[in-house]
Write a protein that binds this DNA or RNA. Structure first.
Length: 307
DNA sequence: CACCATGTTCCTTG
DNA sequence: CCAAGGAACATGGT
């Protein structure tokens, strides 16, 4: 049993380490993480930072990160798209300091008792005294950096009030690219990923191959609502099934270890089309299809999504 | 060994 | 200049 995943240590965040079929963080997973991790970090002071893989610091030099964070205190954790935005207060002058975190495909962040063995792919270890704040990332596609460029390129958050029909119409209107591919553009829908792009189009009843600029006002409205509902629903599932401390330690495949029998059913049925090629559509029974767009898998129901 | 993977960025091609 | 597609990044499961 890996201590990193042991709920007895106060907190655990998990998604399946296998590459296939297990959730990689998109907006909902990052939101759930931020809500749980934020309160645990608030007020905690950093004594030092160990960087075991400089790659995840991006453009930030190792020494600069270490110098900047030493002595600082975590104040706030927010989400922007798929990024985590850590606000810290420096020790000397009490100035605000921002660190951008991104989980890439396989990243995890959690607290670990100081005496616990670090995981093989611990990329950054922030020493908080009694505990370490660990950024683990098997593939090292994630980031923990002072470089905020990625965040500045993001479009409006789909759960915020700037994400309107008018914005979506303008963002999609100029492109003949397939609507599913455009949805993955972080400047269009910050936080959208491959799973929820398929799920949102299914919910809106829109074919994924439709050119973005050809959507009618009615389709744009349905798509915007579908995106909000799909993401909000996934967050709700993550929050409500999250910390089941009576767990046996078995993986739940969504966000956390351990699950109640009721949660198991919701988790099993959480996707309507994603990764369901060849299976019956849960709404109409037609076989769900898979197709590759821009080198990514898209799943859809040819009957429910006829436009 | 070959192929696949839920993210992002860069490069080439048209 | 832009759109579109593909490769690269690094690792591991099947």
């Amino acid at each position: 049993m890996n201590h990193a995943h042991d709920p007895a240590h106060g907190w655990a965040f998990h998604f399946r380490p296998t590459s296939y079929g297990g959730p990689v963080p998109e907006l909902p997973e990052v939101e759930v993480l931020a809500r749980h991790l934020g309160p645990l970090l608030r007020g905690r002071a950093i004594t030092r930072v160990k960087v075991r893989r400089a790659l995840v610091l991006g453009a930030t030099p190792v020494r600069r990160l270490q110098r900047t964070l030493a002595g600082a205190t975590f104040q706030k954790l927010a989400r922007r798209g798929k990024y985590l935005l850590f606000t810290l207060i420096t020790a000397k002058r009490g100035e605000e300091l921002l660190v951008a975190g991104h989980l890439g495909m396989t990243g995890r962040m959690y607290l670990l008792p100081a005496e616990a063995k670090l995981p093989k792919h611990a990329a950054v270890v922030v020493d908080l005294g009694e505990e370490n704040f660990v950024f683990e990332d098997t593939r090292y596609f994630g980031r923990f950096t002072l470089d905020l460029d990625g965040i500045e390129r993001l479009g409006p958050d789909p759960l915020g009030d700037r994400f309107t029909n008018q914005f979506l119409a303008e963002a999609l209107g100029g492109s003949r690219q397939a609507v599913k591919v455009k949805l993955l553009d972080q400047s269009v829908v910050a936080g959208m990923g491959n799973i929820y792009a398929s799920e949102s189009l299914f919910r809106a009843g829109i074919p994924p191959t439709l050119p973005a600029s050809s959507l009618t006002p009615g389709q744009l409205d349905r798509l915007r609502s579908a995106i909000c509902e799909v993401l909000a629903g996934a967050i709700e599932l993550g929050i409500s099934t999250a910390l089941h401390y009576a767990a046996t330690g078995q993986r739940d495949g969504v966000f956390y270890f351990g699950r109640s029998p009721e949660a198991a059913q919701a988790i099993e049925e959480r996707f309507k089309v994603y990764d369901r090629a060849g299976l019956s559509c849960r709404v109409c029974g037609t076989l769900v299809e898979r197709r590759v767009q821009a080198a990514r898998s898209t799943y859809f129901c040819p009957t429910c999504q006829r436009g």
